[in-house]
């Protein structure tokens, strides 16, 4: 376990943009080591500068290839970029195969790019528990752009909204049930739609399908999600995508807080309170022996878990009063 001085050294390294420190910091966070909290508290004041972009979409839509092209385009414009690519952990073995960076390997030796693969470690929602903090590390390290690529197969990629400011949903023609491949939830959260592989037949149909879906959504919004075309293989349409990303960034700044970033901060605070509160209540109940006692009763079918929880909390609540 790294000692405190070590954490100090790493956090200083992160802020100075040292690659080795960034890598180690992310590991500490991923491992949910006790030092993780200290680390985040030390770098937190340096965050908030990067444009955080979430990219999601069904597998086969060409996400990784497109990201590679997006990164290149940002590099051409003199921006530094961090990428966090998330892949699922096997629920059976706990292992994971992280292969997203294969398509970006040529970028790995570029000093202005940092790519990190993460496994979900069974956190629901398609993003790793640590993703949010890994993004903070890259942000604090001075990356102008941080891109988060999430698992396309889960049912609730919508979790990405907790991490990213601008959300790009990628689709491609010929992915089975066409528009059905984009889940309703994703339609709601997308700031930009991209139809990749736009050189294929049916690309137009995919675009009109998305537009039709968007029109169904009657809620009045200040930002109207555009539908863009790209061909990731050749990079066609990528500069236009970058323009839109920048536009959205400006829009968010203009809107000041931006409903989204407020929502994100709120969610994060709520989650943190929940986690801490729940942990401390449970620990206390265990200390008092009530937890095990109730557990026995549940096992003996004397009481159901939900009523038991109510009862325990009720007694706590009264005591607190």
């Amino acid at each position: 376990m790294p000692e405190l001085s070590k954490i100090e050294e790493i956090s200083q390294g992160v802020v100075a943009g040292d690659r080795r420190s960034i890598a180690r910091a992310i590991t500490i966070i991923e491992n949910d080591a006790p030092e993780a909290k200290t680390l985040i508290s030390k770098i937190y004041s340096h965050t908030g500068k990067a444009h955080i972009i979430g990219l999601t979409g069904p597998s086969g839509s060409g996400k990784s290839t497109l990201i590679e092209k997006i990164v290149r385009e940002y590099r051409r414009r003199g921006k530094s970029v961090g990428v966090v690519a998330v892949d699922p952990t096997s629920p059976f073995t706990g292992g994971a195969f992280l292969g997203d960076r294969i398509r970006m390997q040529e970028l790995s030796t570029d000093e202005g790019v940092f790519i990190r693969s993460m496994a979900t470690r069974n956190y629901p929602g398609g993003i790793a528990k640590a993703t949010r903090d890994a993004v903070k590390i890259l942000d604090a390290a001075g990356k102008d752009i941080v891109i988060v690529e999430t698992v396309g197969a889960g049912q609730s990629e919508v979790e990405i909204i907790k991490v990213a400011e601008t959300i790009v949903v990628i689709h491609a023609p010929g992915l089975g049930d066409d528009i059905q491949a984009i889940k309703a939830g994703l339609m709601e959260i997308a700031d930009i739609f991209v139809v990749n592989k736009a050189d294929r037949e049916n690309a137009e149909k995919a675009i009109t399908d998305i537009q039709a879906m968007l029109q169904l959504n009657t809620k009045e919004k200040a930002w109207k999600p555009p539908v863009l075309k790209t061909v990731a293989l050749t990079g066609e349409g990528v500069p236009q995508l970058i323009e839109k990303l920048e536009e959205h960034r400006t829009f968010l700044k203009r809107e000041k807080i931006g409903e989204k970033s407020l929502l994100r901060a709120e969610t994060e605070l709520v989650e943190a309170i929940k986690e801490k509160a729940v942990n401390s209540i449970i620990e206390e109940l265990k200390r008092e022996g009530k937890f095990q006692e109730t557990l026995q009763k549940i096992m003996a079918k004397e009481i159901d878990p939900s009523s038991a929880a109510e009862k325990l909390l009720h007694s706590k609540f009264k005591k607190a009063k």
Partner: peptide, 26 residues
């Protein structure tokens, strides 16, 4: 992976520079 590890695969034809830089970032 089946033994519970997180495995990062580089794909084919990597230069020594790419391999080492990947090891560092990951």
């Amino acid at each position: 992976r089946d033994a519970g590890m997180e495995v990062i695969y580089t794909g084919l034809r990597q230069t020594p520079e790419q391999i080492v830089e990947t090891a560092l970032q990951e």
